[in-house]
Design a protein around this nucleic acid. Structure first.
Lengths: 218, 218
DNA sequence: GCATTTCCGTACCGCAGGTACAGTTTTGGA
DNA sequence: TCCAAAACTGTACCTGCGGTACGGAAATGC
């Protein structure tokens, strides 16, 4: 039971790296089992077929993603009672997290699957949609709390601003991977942070509502 | 000669759609030639191997991309002498162009290749990097002209703001594809437009430098 | 110590990428 | 009109991988 879990995780680790580097179709089971140190029979003991591998790969990625985001913005909320400051702190911590990844972000599984839609059954595609909407929803709730204290400087839909972070991250990952410069992703997240700050706490908008000065405010 | 070109383009059309929907490895030559109405021998007459297909696919995509961007911002520049207004007009036209795509944007070839790096030789990978830097450079030149007339409200590197558009587009395409809602890409481009407008022409920054009122200003 | 879990070995099928090469049709130009 | 080049077709073949099937062995936990 415990040993089985470990092997399963090892298979998923190897497969995830391969999928993000070569795509799902080019991720050969032979290569995965060779790197994971098992046989083909061992692989098919853990996963019925390749499609189930994809499903579990995505499920695990989403769970980890949610865990990280919740912990990150949870800690940020402990550092400031003001929703805006907490969100800005969270964004800065997110940027630092990305900066600390050795070799840069390996890639977003959601984006990878998105560009190979036709390979997967509806369960995987639906899960992918739910995942991205779930992240959007989490971010949106933060922005709604911020907007409750005062309207944005320029009229931009809160939902669109929430989606923008997902776009910035996915786009930033691509930018970083293509150019070979991991810092590009970090810069983009901080640029988004500037956008949020300007929308809700720009110098000329100060005084509209009581904004506490948090550690992330510059 | 002319007939050969047409067949070649037809192959590339079919292959491009398949690559953006299933990935490169899963794009079977058998399927491409069936849809293009030729034989396998015919395919290998035009392309030495699958890697050359990838290279030509990317080359064609980049050329078309540059053509569209140049024409779009070129026309925008004719509508306003002010760099900021021209850029804002260009962004709005870009958003409209994306909104008019039937079935939404089919996907970005650069992003697709990025998530399958290890499949291709260095020529393709290098071309991909040059392509994204080239787009960044084009956008940056516009933003530099804008910044020359007055500093941004918040200190954000012009290069980062230029890269941000690429990120927004690539991220927006993914968001639109995964959710099945093409309009999400349009909204993101317009949100980026708002960011640029706020940075260089916000109401509280007015009067710093003479900004002409263009048709795209709201 | 015993059942369950966790894997190994082997043998096999079908499909697609890719190669090789000879032959055929189409096309554009002199 | 003819001819050479371009633009394919047809066939045959090799290789590697996804996937199946099934029997058995070793490790694990109670």
């Amino acid at each position: 039971m415990r040993k089985g879990e470990a092997t399963r995780e090892r298979i998923l680790d190897v497969a995830e790296a391969s999928v993000l580097a070569k795509g799902f179709a080019a991720t050969s089971i032979e290569e995965v089992i060779a790197e994971a140190g098992i046989t083909k029979s061992g692989f098919f003991y853990h996963f019925r077929d390749k499609n189930e591998l994809a499903h579990e790969l995505l499920r695990r990625y989403i769970a980890e993603d949610h865990r990280i985001l919740d912990e990150l913005f949870g800690r940020a909320a402990e550092l400031s009672d003001d929703p805006l400051q907490a969100f800005l702190i969270g964004l800065k911590m997110l940027a630092e997290l990305m900066a600390d990844l050795p070799g840069g972000h390996p890639g977003c599984m959601i984006a990878s699957i998105c560009y190979q839609e036709r390979l997967f059954d509806r369960r995987v595609v639906d899960l992918n949609r739910e995942a991205i909407e779930s992240v959007n929803s989490r971010i949106r709730s933060h922005l709604e709390a911020i907007a409750a204290a005062g309207p944005p400087r320029e009229p931009v839909d809160i939902a669109v601003m929430a989606e923008m972070l997902s776009c910035i991250i996915d786009g930033g990952i691509i930018m970083a991977k293509v150019t070979g410069d991991p810092h590009r992703l970090v810069r983009q997240i901080l640029a988004y942070r500037t956008f949020v700050k300007m929308q809700f706490a720009g110098p000329s908008a100060a005084g509209v509502s009581p904004r506490s000065r948090g550690v992330a405010a510059e």
